[in-house]
Every structure is written in structure tokens, then in C-alpha cells.
Design a protein around this nucleic acid. Structure first.
Length: 864
RNA sequence: GCCCGGGUGGCGGAAUUGGUAGACGCAGCAGACUCAAAAUCUGCCGCCGCAAGGCGUGUCGGUUCGAUUCCGACCCCGGGUACCA
């Protein structure tokens, strides 16, 4: 190379400024400040072995732009990052290799940290957290104990999704189409002892408080649907055989009681055995067995074909005394409502289908308001729309909503019904039979042990003891006291589940079976001498660990005070930082993480730890980035783009810029490997526009304030306005377009004032911070650039003296005129009539009407 | 099936409150520079047409002086969900 020009040299610029920021702690957040605060939160990553995915830096760049912009606007910014590092892949790796999952996790974290730092995000690294750090999970355990103490955690043996391949239990939400969400392995139902969190106790608040949140509507709707509130009534049907008592059903439409022609109970319903008459016993038993054997996959596959068996028993309709046959059918689920329904085939699609199949009568009791929609021979059934009652003695003619209230009230008076609310939301199965999770800080003791602990004054006990019965023995749950936390994971020889189906922790004998002091949490192995002090109890530790959701349920709180050893965070920090002002993450967490975190947050609010009862006021989902082929990026698809490769070839600034330039942040968009050249060229243009071949300030930059053209000054102010507004509205793609327009003009401009050049570099800085920092210093500024106040624009400079007016004839564009501002309609019309082309479209026609929108349009309506 | 989201040039996308459709970028074409290439710069770039002009934002219809934007019906693509009584 003959030339010695110093061009845009990103490989040297980027690491240099990253070191500068780190050494100067440029992004340190102050825990109190006269400045207004701004807290921007990224969904923290699971540090997988595969390294950073291109989707991570997309959302992270967006929050980083907001943070750098807010700092320049004078905010005290909290922008933290950490690691959601418990999880299945590390455990599976440990099972395979025998190395401790912590070792592998640490290596992955190191790699992730390197990759994230290479992107130049303005994180306050002093606040980095890791959910697997005992000093972190100590507080996860502490929060669990708050739930336990308040009666929100209990133990139950219940059928759960067991994945033989993963050797673990999965939450409902982790099972997709009868396969595990992770790994896509088949799953089956198994009854196992589980810790369950009573999230249903918060269902009403979780639903109601959605309203005030600045979240995408679709996400709010998804949560609302997941919670699934429905208002109705529980209605008691007396059984024909009075000795059997009542059958209680839940219905949202008690107004259709007169249309009930049969009843259905779930195959798992406790009354099935008692109800069934002798001659039906065989058929029912066979049906129940069949239903139990069906995996959920089969149940859904067969969803369209309803099946059932008549039990032989009857129930009495409380509204009219009619005898209704009781069927056993698996389209009624034991887990919802009361596990029994009254079937109204005329007004429910499922009941209709079933009634058709088994020749059960269909009685219409709701008539559409507009009865003209009736076909010949009656309306289309099943009908579930609006309407008024028919065939309902004493209620016919009423709108169904009113009938629903009246009939519920009438039956309630006779003690046969009560208005109730049902939720689709289930309690949250919170335990996993895994090693690599937070140990649940519970010790199981016998009844005498529990009573002696109570007598000794053990704290944090729930009002009613949490117990579990197995093989006739009842165990009582005692919490490990706060001062003994964290309850650390013990070392184990094998990371495979124990033979009993318990987690690998069940094999850590010395840790598991202990002498335990319920007041201090002190313990030692049961194989050692029993203590002399009689408050010590013989106990067995809980072997379940917490699910990965646990650590991510409250991490945004820990960032506010990550090293606090007295509390999850100090009260003053919690009150100062409140909650994140912006939370960006993928839409795949719309229900699970976001619902669980809201639940914990509300509990902590009730405990009195938090000053606010909702965690995430403003939420935004970045769209996913697809591969070049328009398909989801995947290793098997061979379309994965690695941030490392792009940083090496084009630099972090280019990558950040391109991720934002691809399209709107929320949109799903394909990666185009050639498109990146465009934004890279843009940065080179900016460089060449401001820096000469010797690496010094370009000669077009002049100190004198009025040396550049008025048009160019105006463009700068337009750019400041556009970029500022676009950042505020998170429309980063159009902000970049505007900066490109400016850069193109810069290269054509002979003169740019020093002030203009610096202002433009400030605009660029949130997007491409390294090159902006370099330019800023070369223009004589002091690093970091974010310390300089964000540039403002002058409205007056944005105004035009002339205006462009588009002229239409009959709504079609026929020309445009440059006219003085504030021109009258009549003058504009005169000007238009001087235009030959416009006139040619009006010749020989009569003027009918003129529409004039000043500054925009003149539409001349003519007719022949 | 139901619930969401989305259909704009060859491609990613832009378009304020109903007021010039296609900003910006990619790709492409032509030219300048060069022995040549790369890089860079200049110009062109929705479709049909020599032009005048016509057509054009998934389709059909409506409202309006004027519709990518509002209303109605439909088609297609993507995501979520699955008997929730």
C-alpha cells in the first residue's frame, strides 16, 4: 500500500474504548443522586455452551442505546447484566462428563462475558450477578421461606409430567404437544411428591393489575387468557339415589339450566365408583382404564371424537326436578371446576357433539335476539351467541345475562347454588428432581419433632404445618432458619437421579440425614453422635431443587443492591430505583417468566419488602432475527450468524447499527449478510467526512459558527429532532436512516462547523459508541461523549419560507408548485392555473370545487 | 376451530391526523477514475409504454374531493392455544 491514509480502523478503536470505559467505570450507577434515575433491564441470558446468539445483542443494543441516550440527557442510569446460570444443559453436561456443573457454567459465563463486552454495552459490571452464586441464591431461598411462612407453599403428591429422557419433572408450560419443550423428548404422567406454590391465591390481582401496565396488548391478553377467569356458579344436583348426596357442577351459564339434558363427570371423579350401577361397572371400569392410559398427546389427537359411558345413575335438576342421566366422559377434566358439568347440548358445541353421538335430547333455551336469523325449522344449533330465554318456566323472555343472575340468586336462596369464580390458572409446581438448582431450604421431621420445634419457638412456620404422608408416615416441613442460609449444594459423586426417582441430592447421605437445630439451622450428619441439646431433631433434608424460573423471578431487584448481605436489597435502594423503567426481552416469556415474577413481586410487596406491587411497568419485545433463508436460526439449519464473526469482519459498531437498521425492533426480520456492508459504509463515510488522511480533524471543519450553508445547518437540526424522537419511541431504524442522510450531505458539504460536527457525533454515539468516542476526542471533546449534554434543536430553523404544494385535479397528482408560505387558497389556485400541465387536465371543464390544505395539497375538482 | 400479529418494488423496509406511495439501505444498470481490478465518486432504478399517459400498497366492495391509512367481506403467511364447562 502506497498511501498512508489513516482510515476507520475499528479493530484498534473498539478494544481501546472498551478498556477506557472499564478503567474509568464510565457506566457506574449511583445509588442516590440528584439526577433523575433511569433503570433499563435486559432479560439476562442463560450462559449456554453455544455462546451468544445474534438475538441477544438485538435487544441488548436497544436498551444500550436508551441508556447512553439517557445519560447524555442527564439521567443516573442503572443498566446491569447477569447470568441465569442454573439449568438443565449444564446438568446434562455434568451427567455426561462427571465434572461439576459449576465448572462448566463458569466457563460458559466467561465466554458470554467476553462476547458481551466485545459489543461495547454500557453495563455497570460491578453489579453483575449469577443465580448460582450462593450469595445470590441465599436470597432466592429466603424468598421461598417467605412464601412458605405465608402458607403459599405446600407439598402434594400429584401427577406431573415426567420426562424419562431428561429424568426430571416438567411444568405444564414446559410440555409442548406431549413433548418436552427442551429437547423435544416424550413425556408421561407420574405421581410424585412436589412442592407447589399457591399462585392461584393471587389470580385475581395478577389479572386486575395487568390493566395499568405499559405492555404490548398481545402479551397482556396472553396473560389474561392464561389466568382465565370465568364467572359462574356452582350448582348442586341431588342424586336420584339420595343416599349418595349431591353432585356439584360448575357452569358459567346457569341461565341454561332448563336446557340441561344430561350430566358428565370426569373419569377421575371420586363419585364415579359410588354412582355406577352394577350392570355398568364393567363398561365404566374399562373406560376409566382407557382414559388413564391415554397420554395427553392422544387425548388431544382424539379431541374431535367424543366418547363416554353411561353410569346408570341420575341427578335431579334443581330448577325443574327433571331426572338427568349421568355420563362418564373424558372431555370433562378433573382439574377444572368441580370435574363435573351439566350438559346443555343446544348451547355448547362439545355437549352438542356428544348428544348427537349418543342420541341424547337437545332442548333449546336461548333464542337469538334477531330471530330472523332462524333457518327453516329453527335456529342453527348449537347456539352460543347473545339472546333471550325460551322454554324456561318463569324466566322465558329475559335476556340471558339477567336470567343468569336471577336463577343463581333463586337457587342460592334454596342453598342449591352459589356464585363462584373459576380460574384456568393452576398452582405452580415448583420442585425439580435435579441437582443443578437452588436447594429448597426445608428439613423433614416427624410429628413429635415438629411439636418440639414449635415449643422451642422455631420461627417462620406457616399457620398450618406443611405435611406429607407416605407409607402411613406423616412428615412435617421445618424451614432452615434465615441465619443458616444459604443452604449450599452438597458435593455428589453422580449427577444422575437416585434410584428412588429423587434428585441426585438423595445420594448425598451425610448432607441428607442430619441432626438439625430448628432454631439456628445448625446441622451435622446423622451418622455422627447425637447432640446433647434436646432442641436438636433428627431430620431429612428436602431433596428437590427449585426450577430455573426461581432465580429469574427477582433478579431485577438484586441489581439494585447486588452485594447486600442483610437483605435482598436495602430499603433505600429499592425506593430509589423502584422498578425497571424499561424491560426488553423476547415474547416467548410472555406468560411464564413474566407471570411468575409478577407473583413473587406481589408476595414480596405483601411481606412489606417492596414499595411497589408491580415489577415491570414498561415492557417491550424485540422480534426474532431469522436466518438468511427466512427460517429460524438453528444449528441444524446451518443458518446461524455468530456475533463474533461479524465483530471480526466489520466491528461491533457496525453490528449494533445493522441490528437496529434491519427493521422495527419488534418485527421479526431476516438477516441479510450483504446488507451489513451498507451500514459499514455509512460509518466509513462519517469517518472520512470528519477525519483527514492523517487521522486529524478534516479541513472542512471550521470554527466560525456561520460558515456552513443554511441548508446544511437546517439538516442537522432536522436530524437532531428525528433521532431524538425516534430514540424516545424506540424507532431506531428510522433514526439511522436520518443519520445516513446527514452523512451523505456531510461528504458533499465543503464546510461544516465544529459545533455541528460535534452534535452529529453525539447523535451517533448511542448507536455506534466506539467510533463516536474516537471521533469525539479527535474533534477536541473529552471522553466519554455521554458526559456532554444531548444536543437540542432550534424549531425556528426547521421552518421553511416557501412551501411545496401538490396540485391534484380530481384527486390525481398533476404537478407541484413552490409557493410562499401562508399563501391564500385563491392565490394558490391562480398559481396552479398558470401551470400548463395542470391546465391541460382542466381544459373545457367546469370548476366544481377546490380543496385546499395549506402546506400540503390543492385539489381542483372539475366536471365536463 | 379460537385468539393474536402480518401481507407495500428484485430484497430489508419508509410514509405525521385520511393529503406527493416507495425515504434510507441492499442488489442491479450506466458512466467517471484505473493498464486492469477492488475501493471510491456521479447518474438511473415500482410495472406497462417511444411518449403522452395508464396501472400500482394481498383480493373484492364501500365511505371520501382524496384511502397503504377508515368500514365490510374474503384470501394467504406467521405465532400462540387446545375439550376450561
Amino acid at each position: 500500500m502506497a498511501t498512508h491514509s489513516i482510515d476507520y480502523d475499528f479493530p484498534s478503536i473498539e478494544p481501546r474504548w472498551q478498556s477506557f470505559w472499564a478503567e474509568n467505570k464510565a457506566f457506574k450507577a449511583e445509588d442516590s443522586s440528584p439526577k433523575p434515575k433511569y433503570y433499563a433491564l435486559d432479560m439476562f441470558p442463560y450462559p449456554s455452551g453455544a455462546g451468544l446468539h445474534i438475538g441477544h445483542p438485538e435487544g441488548y443494543t436497544a436498551t444500550d442505546i436508551m441508556c447512553r441516550y439517557k445519560r447524555a440527557c442527564g439521567y443516573n442510569v442503572l443498566h446491569p447484566i447477569g447470568w441465569d446460570a442454573f439449568g438443565l444443559p449444564a446438568e446434562q453436561h455434568a451427567v455426561k462428563t462427571g465434572t461439576h456443573p459449576a465448572t462448566n457454567t463458569e466457563a460458559n459465563v466467561t465466554n458470554f462475558r467476553r462476547q458481551i463486552k466485545a459489543l461495547g454495552f454500557s453495563y455497570d459490571w460491578d453489579r453483575e450477578i449469577n443465580t448460582t452464586d450462593p450469595e445470590y441464591y441465599r436470597w432466592t431461598q429466603w424468598i421461598f421461606l417467605q412464601l412458605f411462612k405465608r402458607g403459599l407453599a405446600y407439598v402434594d403428591k400429584r401427577p406431573v409430567w415426567w420426562c424419562p429422557a431428561l429424568k426430571t419433572v416438567l411444568a405444564n408450560e414446559e410440555v409442548v404437544d406431549g413433548k418436552s419443550e427442551r429437547g423435544n423428548h416424550p413425556v408421561e404422567r407420574r405421581a410424585l411428591r412436589q412442592w407447589v406454590l399457591r399462585i392461584t391465591a393471587y389470580a385475581d390481582r395478577l389479572l386486575a393489575d395487568l390493566e395499568g401496565l405499559d405492555w404490548p396488548d398481545s402479551t397482556k391478553r396472553m396473560q389474561a387468557a392464561w389466568i382465565g377467569r370465568s364467572e359462574g356458579a356452582e350448582v348442586d344436583f341431588i342424586l336420584d339415589d339420595h343416599s349418595l348426596g349431591n353432585l356439584t357442577v360448575f357452569t358459567t351459564r346457569p341461565d341454561t339450566l332448563f336446557g340441561a339434558t344430561y350430566m358428565v363427570i370426569a373419569p377421575e371423579h371420586p363419585l364415579v365408583d359410588k354412582l355406577t350401577i352394577a350392570s355398568q361397572r364393567g363398561a365404566i371400569a374399562a373406560y376409566r382404564q382407557q382414559a388413564a392410559a391415554k397420554s395427553d398427546l392422544e387425548r388431544t389427537d382424539l379431541a374431535k371424537d367424543k366418547s363416554g359411558v353411561f353410569s346408570g345413575a341420575f341427578a335431579i335438576n334443581p330448577i325443574n326436578g327433571q331426572k338427568l342421566p349421568i355420563w362418564v366422559a373424558d372431555y370433562v377434566l378433573m382439574g377444572y371446576g368441580t370435574g363435573a358439568i351439566m350438559a346443555v347440548p343446544a348451547h355448547d358445541e362439545r355437549d352438542y357433539e356428544f348428544a348427537q353421538k349418543y342420541d341424547i335430547p337437545i332442548v333449546q333455551v336461548i333464542e337469538p335476539l334477531d330471530s330472523s336469523s332462524d333457518r327453516e325449522g329453527g335456529p342453527d344449533l348449537p347456539y352460543s351467541g347473545d339472546g333471550k330465554l325460551v322454554n324456561s318456566d318463569g324466566y322465558s323472555g329475559l335476556p340471558w345475562q339477567e336470567a343468569k343472575q336471577r336463577m343463581t340468586a333463586a337457587l342460592a336462596d334454596k342453598d342449591r347454588a352459589k356464585a363462584t369464580v373459576n380460574f384456568r390458572l393452576r398452582d405452580w409446581i415448583f420442585s425439580r428432581q435435579r441437582y443443578w438448582g437452588e436447594p429448597i431450604p426445608i428439613v423433614w421431621v416427624d410429628k413429635a419433632g415438629y411439636e418440639s420445634a414449635v415449643a422451642a419457638g422455631a420461627s417462620d412456620l406457616p399457620k398450618d404445618p406443611v405435611t406429607f404422608e407416605e407409607d402411613g408416615l406423616i412428615s412435617y416441613a421445618l424451614p432452615v432458619p434465615d441465619q443458616a442460609l444459604p443452604l449450599a449444594l452438597p458435593e455428589v459423586e453422580s449427577y444422575l437421579p437416585s434410584d428412588s426417582g429423587e434428585s441426585p441430592l438423595a445420594n448425598a447421605q451425610a448432607w441428607l440425614d442430619i441432626w438439625f437445630n430448628p432454631l439456628t439451622g445448625a446441622s451435622h450428619s446423622a451418622t455422627e453422635e447425637p447432640p446433647i441439646d434436646s432442641t436438636w431433631l433428627r431430620g431429612r433434608r428436602e431433596t428437590n431443587t427449585m426450577p430455573q424460573w426461581a432465580g429469574s423471578c427477582w433478579y431485577y431487584l438484586r441489581y439494585m443492591d447486588p452485594k447486600n448481605s442483610e437483605a435482598i436489597a436495602s430499603r433505600s435502594n429499592l425506593e430509589y430505583w423502584r422498578t425497571p423503567d424499561l424491560y426488553i426481552g423476547g415474547a416467548e416469556h410472555a406468560v411464564l417468566h413474566l407471570l411468575y415474577a409478577r407473583f413473587w413481586h406481589k408476595v414480596l410487596f405483601d411481606v412489606g419488602v417492596l414499595p411497589y406491587d408491580e415489577p415491570f411497568q414498561k415492557l417491550f419485545h424485540q422480534g426474532i432475527i431469522l436466518g438468511e433463508d427466512g427460517e429460524k436460526m438453528s444449528k441444524s439449519g446451518g443458518n446461524v450468524v455468530s456475533p463474533d464473526t461479524i465483530i471480526e469482519s466489520h466491528g461491533a459498531d457496525t453490528l449494533r447499527l445493522y441490528l437496529m437498521f434491519l427493521g422495527p425492533l419488534e418485527a421479526k426480520k431476516p438477516w441479510n449478510p450483504r446488507g451489513i456492508e451498507g451500514v459499514h459504509r455509512f460509518l466509513q463515510k462519517v469517518w472520512r467526512g470528519l477525519i483527514n488522511e492523517h487521522g486529524k480533524m478534516h479541513s472542512r471543519i471550521k470554527a466560525s459558527p456561520n460558515s456552513e450553508s443554511a441548508d446544511f445547518t437546517k439538516l442537522l437540526h432536522e436530524t437532531i429532532k428525528k433521532v431524538t424522537e425516534d430514540i424516545e419511541n424506540m424507532r431506531f431504524n428510522t433514526a439511522i436512516s436520518q443519520m445516513m442522510i446527514y452523512a451523505n450531505a456531510l461528504l458533499k458539504s465543503e464546510v461544516v462547523t465544529h459545533t455541528s460536527a460535534k452534535a452529529f457525533v453525539q447523535l451517533l454515539a448511542p448507536f455506534a459508541p466506539h467510533v463516536a468516542e474516537e471521533l469525539w476526542v479527535k474533534l477536541g471533546g473529552n471522553a466519554p461523549v455521554q458526559a456532554a449534554a444531548w444536543p437540542g434543536y432550534d424549531e425556528k430553523l426547521l421552518e421553511n419560507e416557501t412551501q411545496k404544494l401538490v396540485v391534484q385535479v380530481n384527486g390525481k397528482r398533476r404537478g407541484e408548485l413552490i409557493l410562499p408560505k401562508n399563501i391564500e387558497e385563491s392565490e394558490a389556485l391562480v398559481a396552479a392555473q398558470k401551470d400548463k400541465i395542470i391546465m391541460s387536465h382542466m381544459e373545457g371543464k367546469t370548476l366544481r370545487r377546490v380543496i385546499y390544505v395549506p402546506g400540503r395539497i390543492l385539489n381542483i375538482v372539475v366536471a365536463s
